[in-house]
Design a binder for these strands. Structure first.
Lengths: 230, 230
DNA sequence: ACTATTATTATGTGCATGCTTAATAGTATT
DNA sequence: AATACTATTAAGCATGCACATAATAATAGT
């Protein structure tokens, strides 16, 4: 009986799905499973690690392996550079800078970075277009003390989104999804009506504790984020 | 020089972050890296697998390992049972059934399941409360030919959300996030105003190709989905 | 009865070795 | 000369063993 680690994973998953193993149930230890499947303990370990990743089981040394008590839906979203998202969809990409100025950030921006009080940042507002139609409205605060080079970039030609992702990698990122009603200003730029529900993706990034940028990307009405979870 | 696989992973990630390895760049092969780090090839392989998971690098047999060309933000969200989400936040959970009837599904529901044409399903509308205030409005279509037991469940006592997650595991799940304006009916139940922007999470699940349920969970205004990506 | 130590047990990690896959070079055939 | 098949080989991938580590349970000492 020769089983690959992924077959073992699938079989355990099947037992969980078919309720042969109930939530909270303790699985046999790796050694026993290895004997059952006729393989080495390491192979079972591999399968189990994958199940830990997908949130199917929990493992603790000495405590053993148990089926996750409260099943959850674990989904993964990839957020690409906006230009690529548009071009991948087969649409023509367009971009223009709405405003660019250095000013003291509002408190909510500072607190999102975990900063005690507001500080001077570069505030950039821009619009991304798909097939000449507004697609994403980008309201961004850049901590230029962390990334001084950004001050020399001509943001009317290259989006801050793209420049930062390519030139200022981050170590930590907080993502926030929410819905809001479009303001007058946002609606105008997005060719929508004021009050229209818009989908907002907020991202705050740091490089080793140092704040880089916080962006509020507001999608035009109709935008959806889709993913297939296993 | 003894390095654990996670230290190797962190070091490679650092090189990518510090732009010592540019997007698209080819890394040395596992053998060479193993020599550099003074460890076995397998240990490098482990580190690399983790970097593949996080989307940092791509690997192809014979082709080698390359730094991901277009950096992306990969985020993972865990969507729990609504009751637990509320209780975990330290709030009192409440629930009531708004309506329950068997009827032919609209076409958009059928097409979400990948069904050619509409069919009879169980349609359930319910409200989840946090500290007696509306929290999530749940509009659900259940394929009762896949899960006939659901017809015998008293959904005024136990939410379909909970019963299904506990009793009808799924193998595939499609998740969709979007924003919309609350309808009159939705606004009333959520104690909001018609037209308020609400955050919508749509989930469609299957068990081995057989459709189970499609739920549209509409959160009360102010709801946010937050996660920390690495 | 409480605390410190030791034993046990289950998972985690590192290493050696052999397998699988895909790109490419080489060869034969049209 | 162009195509189609085959062999080579350079990568990553999978498996199994031995040992490390962590969490609990058992025991001994105060």
């Amino acid at each position: 009986m020769s089983n690959s680690w992924s077959e073992i994973r699938d079989e355990i998953k099947r037992r969980v799905l078919e309720r042969e193993l109930l939530p909270g149930a303790k699985l046999p230890n790796d050694q026993e499973l290895a004997e059952e499947f006729g393989c080495a303990r390491t192979t079972v370990q591999r399968a189990m690690q994958d199940l830990v990743h997908s949130g199917t089981v929990n493992r603790r040394r000495k405590g053993g392996t148990t089926v996750t008590l409260h099943p959850i839906t674990r989904t993964t979203f990839d957020i690409p550079i906006t230009r690529l998202e548009i071009q991948t969809a087969g649409k023509e990409y367009g971009y223009f800078l709405v405003s660019r100025e250095i000013r003291v950030s509002p408190t909510h921006v500072a607190s999102s970075f975990g900063l005690a009080k507001p500080m001077e940042m570069l505030h950039v507002v821009a619009l991304h277009l798909a097939d000449k139609k507004p697609y994403i409205y980008e309201d961004r605060w850049i901590v230029h003390s962390t990334t001084p080079e950004i001050l020399d970039i001509d943001l009317s030609r290259e989006s801050a989104n793209e420049w930062l992702i390519r030139n200022r990698p981050y170590s930590d990122c907080e993502v926030r999804f929410l819905a809001k009603n479009a303001t007058h200003h946002e609606a105008e730029l997005l060719s929508a009506d004021p009050g229209d529900a818009v989908f907002v993706m907020e991202r705050t990034t740091w490089i080793n504790k140092a704040p880089i940028t916080m962006v509020r990307a507001i999608a035009a009405p109709g935008y959806q984020l889709v993913t297939k979870a296993s």
